[in-house]
Computed example of a mutant assay.
Amino acid sequence: MAAGSARPGRKGFLSCACFFTDNLFLPRYGLHVRYAGDPEQLRREYGPALRQRGCRTEEEFTAVIQEIEKEVKRRKELSYRSKERKAIISRNYRPKHPELYSLQESFLAPKFLETVKYCTSKEADLQGLLSRVETISDKRIYRLPVFAKEFCQAFIKELESFEHSEMPKGRPNSMNNYGVLLNELGMDEAFITPFREKYLQPLAALLYPDCGGGHLDSHKAFVVKYALKEDLDLSSHYDNAEVTLNVSLGKEFTDGNLYFAEFREDINPVPKYIEVEHVLFHGLLHRGGQMHGALPVTSGERWNLIIWMRSSIVRNQLCPMCNRTPELVEADGFGEGFTSNFDDSQPETVDLCSLI
């Protein structure tokens, strides 16, 4: 489908067709691949990498093709299945803590509120903000307290209540198997959207103006869970986002640190990794294109809230997942954050993160 010819979802948001062909993850081999429906294309482009990772027989290669085709089928059915799950949850699930579904300032850490208040003041600038947050490295990764302890504890209890219910559950993303999609749980409209618009965008506008930080108009929010006998770690990847917030909610766990490498466009034959510990109730802000992953937890359970924030005026120029002009296709809700028409009130140009 040609760009601009798709029917839009909510507020005109769309997806890129590469969602069905690119960044298909093979957990056994720790490899993302592109698959256009031709096994020989996969063999030509990824044969050496697959063999290096242990895929050496024809039977193993056939199993890879089957795994990829299963994932493509899942993605093609994702919109319908998600709407179906959300409707069932809305009709049948009774929240343990219904008060959590609408954002309240009491949920937020006092220092977070003070920092956001500064960002919305007339005298706000980058240097002033940097004096109020922790700078992790020169990779433009920042940490600050986000939620109150009491909120995080109640939120995890709510998530566990949903986890133990008989409600249908979707995977948070293509790499995580355990967690909760917050839009399906019904937390988008009254919690995540105002949280992004009122609190996160003022921070991102100062920290990441070149990434569309002042024009974050959509998101995908989910919670991931790591535990023994479930997901232990996360392979290196970059997010389908311009800016990401990653908040450590709890519970008690050991290890499982995050690690960060270069920005996805930076070519370095020997990546320079930094390891970052989780701090409970604190969030990490980073560019979506920053390569990162998570080391294995060795005990306990780790729950993290992830919000992928997207700027249509950035991604309309170049899809961050395929590095091509987006081929727009119909989507529901926020889709992948693309829009078919540029708003005349938006800036004419925005420097892409990959250019810095």
Rank of each mutant, 00 (worst) to 15 (best):
P110F: 00
G179H: 04
H164V: 04
R44N: 13
E150A: 12
V224G: 02
D344S: 15
S218A: 09
C55N: 08
D332A: 13
S248E: 02
R75S: 14
S311P: 01
I356H: 15
N173M: 05
T339W: 00
I136Y: 08
L182D: 09
G37K: 06
L305A: 10
F162C: 10
G283A: 08
P110R: 05
E105N: 02
R324D: 11
E59A: 13
E277Q: 11
K111M: 10
Y238T: 05
E69D: 14
A2Y: 02
M187P: 02
S82V: 09
E252S: 12
A2D: 08
N316H: 04
R94T: 10
G293F: 07
E71Q: 11
R143A: 10
R132A: 12
M309V: 05
P98S: 03
E114R: 01
E252G: 11
A241D: 02
P27G: 11
V64E: 08
E242Y: 00
E134V: 09
F151I: 06
V279M: 06
F263H: 13
G170Q: 03
I274K: 01
N341K: 14
H219E: 13
E301V: 09
Y118E: 09
G179L: 06
L108G: 01
V270Q: 11
I156L: 07
F155G: 07
R51G: 11
P98F: 08
Y142F: 08
G213Q: 08
F338C: 03
R140E: 15
K198W: 05
I89T: 10
E265L: 12
T21I: 05
F19G: 05
F260E: 04
L203G: 00
K11A: 11
T115P: 00
L258N: 02
A6G: 04
E67T: 07
L182E: 04
E114K: 09
L126G: 04
S354C: 15
V224W: 03
G12P: 11
L159G: 08
P39C: 03
L50A: 14
L144M: 15
C322V: 00
E189N: 13
Q346L: 10
I192K: 01
G300M: 06
S106F: 08
A63C: 09
R51Q: 11
Q41T: 13
F260I: 07
Y29L: 14
L129Q: 08
N176V: 08
P39H: 12
P98M: 06
V224P: 04
V64I: 14
P296R: 03
K86Y: 11
G289K: 03
F19H: 13
Q52C: 12
L144H: 07
I274E: 12
